[in-house]
Design a protein around this nucleic acid. Structure first.
Length: 805
RNA sequence: GCCGCGGUGGUGGAAUGGUAUACACGACGGACUUAAAAUCCGUUGCCUAAUAAGCUUGAGGGUUCGACUCCCUCCCGCGGCACCA
């Protein structure tokens, strides 16, 4: 058996495709031409190079892109680099190699590897978030958001690792610990820049209705935003002019409020604490301050201290003690809550520990307290007997009328902190005057250039702080005493708009022209890992909505259809990692078995979005399949003259073409590959016409572009000259004849009382009577029917017969 | 704890109301070979002498002529959020 020479062919075709521009994005001149924007989440170019997980997602979008090009759509399928980021900076600290140098090296490697896998990117549209041409516009977005009132600076607590001497992003805090050194993360107040994403909370929830995304991703985002509807109610402090405001979603339970708890950071603590309890409260506050987030949330028991003060319930005038407890979160709601121990777990725990009253006020048929279900009110004076819902309405009406409360919606979502005390990121386009007041850099002066020659000092502070030229630039322009912002932006800012830049990569006047964005955006199909279900996807949606509101784009959701690839595990079913020694390098696979094999194997492994382990034996089977395709088609006398078209082959080929098209569109690549295998099993002892072979090759071309191109070229010759227009990847997707894909005769099962007892061959148009006759006279069926009465006869057309006896 | 996804042969999986186990891997038997590899042919859910009967989609119940598929209860695994009032 001959083998497909993957090494020689892959090298040859990669070069020819690139030279002839087979994958260039077409210019849309014809306004009616249907466009298709297919995008992968752009990768961080790490020194480790491409891994098999990348290849899975990229192969899927590649198949989709090739298929849609063949379907005559104008496809844009670009690739770029999310190049700023911490790993490169850490590597630089360790080795002294500047981030720009190791990043560019990694990009070169990635590009080579992607080409080796046969990915059909339009490299003419390549972008990198670390280039001046790109980050000029990232800075422009900062100015834009500021001008729209959506960027502001304030002092706020940030995650701080004392050992690394740096602030950390939320996503770099794993279970309360620093991801790099495993030290517990502290909260530290710093003056930081924020984007006001909370203004868009409701629209970020509502917009999810109109996109085709995995349900779990939508739910994750909705939960992250954490909208909850309730009420704010003010409680008067007994014997004081002060009021404490609480937030509750269960106003209906307010008659069951037997105490109040406020967070240790609450601003009123000083004023309401009585002398008797002052010492204890201050102690408690100091303790809370010292604790890390992790210590505070992982305490087994509730803790708290009494302030000595009482709050007056506005509904019944009852006085309830005010406690301080660290389970109350200062930044959520009002930082104070009314505790209803009969109907809330935490309040119940707290009340039990400190011997506070527990009064049930909801009858929901559950004996055991605490009970959360809604029900009818009890122990609630004039509200007794009302449903929870009606009571809420009546109570809120009273509160609004007497102005001690109002309806309120709260969100878990916080504004987006974008300042990072790091070097390898996009500089924030802000300068400070001698008084320390911030001023925006003017648009015409962008970009604020990130210097390359920084020193990495062991202090952990932003290296830009000590870069003399970076400061001198500002003083020269603005005057003595002026200084630059030395923090850089979160890399998620870079990736919040990159998909728009692809539409117009060389634009020097705008981040992208409206005309080109209208043509290409939004992204039609977006593929990437499930680890981005919240942050990147939500930030991009936020940016898009701001642009929509300001007339830059005519859509307000950036990614219409989204799919996540499942993680590929090591052969031992563990996550691939150096530690387990189970890492598969896709380039080794390309070298040994070829790119077509790697691509088809990764598609064959299982459902696209599911986690699945690598198998070095199963992939051999896929290589065998590629070799069989090669052997059969190059075999002597396999291809027969056109006039002798074989009907049997024609039917199977038409079915194949139909099924593959459907599977690609449904992201069911695993079943598509098995269909190809079935077809090859079938065709082995058949012959095909040249036209049939061509149509088969066209169908498999998106999956195995190298072997398909080689066979296509060998069969069709083209006078030995390869051009863009005679590439198999420039051809039309074959059509199928719907009359041929419908079987005329089928074999169906005959069941008796639901158990299959025999099978019969029927004509698809056979009448019920004919089928019944065939069924009951069938040998295997007849013996079960002897001396039995047929109670019911069911025939589902072309599917099954069931006889009830 | 809450929310979501999943559980099918020895293994990855197919089938989303109609013949469960397609396709592939592995295993076993055979051909070719001095031999091995490669390749090719056959068998392969369990039980069984059997191509007979019976059993089988995490467990139990229900709806239906018919359930991997729909409904209820429970168990297990994975992911996300997590003292959010």
């Amino acid at each position: 058996m001959n083998k497909f020479d993957h090494k020689q062919n892959e090298q040859k075709w990669t070069q020819k495709w690139s030279e002839t521009g087979v994958y260039d994005t077409p210019e849309i001149k014809d306004a009616d031409a249907e466009k298709m924007y297919i995008l992968d989440m752009f990768p961080y170019p790490s020194g480790a190079g491409l891994h098999v997980g990348h290849v899975e997602g990229y192969t899927a979008t590649d198949i989709l892109s090739r298929y849609n090009r063949m379907k005559g759509k104008h496809v844009m399928h670009p690739m770029g680099w999310d190049a700023f980021g911490l790993p490169s900076e850490n590597y630089a600290i360790k080795t002294g190699i500047a981030p720009r140098i190791n990043t560019d090296t990694a990009i070169e490697t990635f590009t080579k590897q992607m080409n080796a896998v046969g990915l059909s990117y339009d490299w003419k549209r390549e972008i990198g978030s670390h280039t001046e041409e790109y980050y000029k516009w990232t800075q422009w977005f900062f100015l834009f958001l500021y001008k729209k009132g959506l960027a502001y600076k304030k002092e706020a607590p940030v995650n701080w690792c004392e050992s690394c001497k740096t602030s950390l992003a939320n996503e770099q805090v794993i279970d309360g610990k620093c991801e790099r050194c495993d030290n517990e993360v502290m909260q530290k107040n710093m003056n930081q820049w924020f984007f006001k994403i909370t203004d868009y909370a409701d629209r970020l929830i509502d917009g999810l209705k109109k996109v085709d995304w995995p349900e779990s991703t939508k739910i994750n985002q909705t939960n992250w935003i954490g909208r909850s509807e309730g009420a704010e109610v003010e409680f008067q402090i007994k014997n004081e002019e002060l009021k404490v405001k609480i937030f509750t979603t269960r106003l209906d339970t307010i008659f069951g409020a037997t105490f109040m708890v406020i967070s240790p950071e609450h601003s009123l603590i000083k004023e309401i604490t009585t002398n008797e309890y002052k010492h204890a409260v201050e102690n408690y506050q100091n303790n809370a301050k010292k604790m890390t987030e992790l210590e505070r949330t992982s305490q087994k028991e509730k803790t708290g201290v009494f302030t000595g003060s009482y709050a007056v319930n506005p509904y019944n005038g009852k006085e309830i003690p005010i406690w301080v407890g660290d389970f109350v979160i200062a930044t959520y709601g009002t930082g104070a809550l009314m505790a209803v121990p009969a109907h809330d777990d935490r309040d119940f725990e707290f009340a039990t520990k400190f011997g506070l009253n527990i009064i049930p006020v909801i009858d929901n048929g559950i004996e055991k307290l605490p009970s959360h279900e809604y029900g009818k009110l009890i122990n609630s004076d004039e509200y007794n007997g009302l449903s929870s819902h009606d009571a809420f309405e009546k109570m809120i009406t009273k509160a609004e009328k007497e102005s001690f409360g109002n309806r309120k919606v709260n969100y878990k979502l916080r504004d987006w902190l974008v300042s990072r005390q790091r070097y390898w990121g996009c500089p924030i386009p802000v300068v400070y005057d001698p008084e320390g007041k911030p001023h925006l850099v003017e648009e015409k002066d962008l970009p604020v250039i990130l210097p390359d020659d920084v020193e990495f000092l062991p202090t952990g502070e932003s290296p830009l702080k000590y870069h003399k030229e970076f400061h001198r630039r500002v003083e020269e322009k603005y005057g003595k005493g002026w200084s630059p912002e030395v923090d850089t932006m979160d890399t998620f800012v870079d990736s919040s708009w990159y998909f728009l830049r692809f539409a117009d990569t060389n634009n020097e006047k705008e981040f992208a022209s409206k005309e080109k964005m209208d043509k290409w955006a939004p992204v039609d199909v977006y593929v990437g890992g499930a680890e981005h279900t919240v942050l990147h996807l939500m930030y991009s949606r936020f940016f898009t909505k701001v642009l929509f509101d300001n007339g830059f784009v005519n859509f307000d959701e950036p990614f219409m259809k989204l799919r996540h690839q499942g993680m590929i595990l090591g052969e031992d079913s563990r996550k691939m990692s150096k530690r387990w020694g189970n890492v598969i390098n896709p380039l080794d696979v390309v070298d040994q078995l070829g790119a077509d094999t790697l691509r088809m194997y990764e598609m064959f492994m299982g459902p696209f979005d599911q986690m699945k382990p690598w198998s070095t034996t199963t992939i051999q089977g896929v290589r065998r399949f590629i070799d069989r395709v090669w052997n059969i088609i190059t075999g002597e006398n396999f291809i027969i003259a056109d006039k002798d078209s074989i009907q049997k082959v024609e039917i199977e080929l038409n079915k194949l073409i139909k099924k593959i098209g459907e599977d690609i569109e449904a992201f069911k690549f695993n079943t598509a590959v098995s269909e190809f295998m079935k077809f090859i099993n079938f065709i082995e002892d058949q012959k095909m016409t040249k036209d049939q072979v061509n149509r088969f090759l066209l169908t498999i071309a998106p999956f195995a572009p190298f072997v398909a191109e080689e066979l296509w070229f060998n069969i069709n010759k083209f006078d030995g000259e390869f051009t863009k227009s005679n590439s198999i990847h420039s051809q039309k997707w074959p059509s199928f004849d719907s009359n041929l894909v419908q079987d005329l005769t089928v074999v169906i099962g005959v069941q008796i009382n639901g158990k299959v007892r025999g099978e019969i061959e029927i004509n698809i148009d056979d009448s019920d009577e004919v089928v019944k006759d065939k069924a009951i006279t069938n040998e295997n069926v007849a013996k079960w029917l002897e001396s039995k009465e047929i109670k019911k006869f069911i025939y589902v057309k072309g599917k099954i017969v069931n006889i009830v006896i």
